[in-house]
Computed example of a mutant assay.
Amino acid sequence: MSEPSSAATYCVHCGKPRDEGDHPRCSGARAALEPPRFCAECARRMVVQVTPAGWSAHCSRHGGTSPPPRN
């Protein structure tokens, strides 16, 4: 099995290819607060759990992700 690439291929908010035009609704201030809904490597819909303490997201092929730590 190959290592996942570090560059995101798909938009994590809409699932469309990153290089397919602008994603104005995906790059706004509100989107910065939203957890990812699609895997950046394969565009599969992820299982997302939102709690009062934060969120977690899991792709069935590429594993999980969590938000960056708060300062």
Rank of each mutant, 00 (worst) to 15 (best):
R30N: 14
A31F: 02
P69C: 01
A7W: 09
P24F: 00
P24M: 00
S27K: 06
F38N: 07
S5K: 05
R25L: 01
E20D: 02
D22M: 01
S60T: 03
T65Q: 14
Y10G: 07
S66A: 03
C11G: 09
P67G: 02
G63M: 12
A32G: 15
V47W: 12
C42Q: 01
V12I: 02
S56F: 06
P24H: 02
A31Q: 05
A43T: 08
E41A: 11
E34N: 10
Q49N: 02
D19R: 00
E20R: 04
C39A: 07
P68R: 13
S5V: 07
P4H: 13
G63I: 14
R70Y: 13
C59A: 15
E34F: 06
K16T: 04
E20I: 01
R37M: 04
G15C: 11
P52R: 12
Q49P: 01
E3P: 01
G63D: 09
A57W: 10
S27A: 09
K16Y: 03
C14R: 03
G63Y: 13
P17C: 00
T51V: 04
S6E: 15
R61K: 13
A7Y: 11
V48G: 03
R18V: 09
A40K: 00
M1K: 12
P35K: 11
P17N: 02
T9N: 11
S60C: 06
N71H: 10
